[in-house]
Amino acid sequence: MKVRLMMTCREATQLCSDQHERTLTRRERWMLRVHLFLCHKCRKFAAQLAMMRDALQRVANLQADSSPAKLSPERREAMKHELRKLV
């Protein structure tokens, strides 16, 4: 039986992604470090993931800025109207 020393790129990129949601276990961190040391493709991926997240968040914020999180006067009145119907 073959002992697998290296995780696959699929597994490594999964951990790269998981890092944004949770703290990796000690073993996972170690395995990922070994993989990234040896694999330039996944190294690029890890860097791109962070950059992509940053850039896309900025785009989303730019798009959201044009309309502040406030109800418009019309919408406000429409809601009041709906609520009063129930009273």
Partner: peptide, 28 residues
């Protein structure tokens, strides 16, 4: 990824700055 878990196409090198990218209409 291939069934063996390898990249089908290797990622390229991206030369870009996230802040600049976000401002660019084409990127948006």
């Amino acid at each position: 990824f291939t069934p063996k878990g390898m990249w089908r196409r290797a990622p390229w090198k991206w030369k870009a700055d996230p802040a600049q990218l976000a401002e660019e209409a084409e990127f948006q």
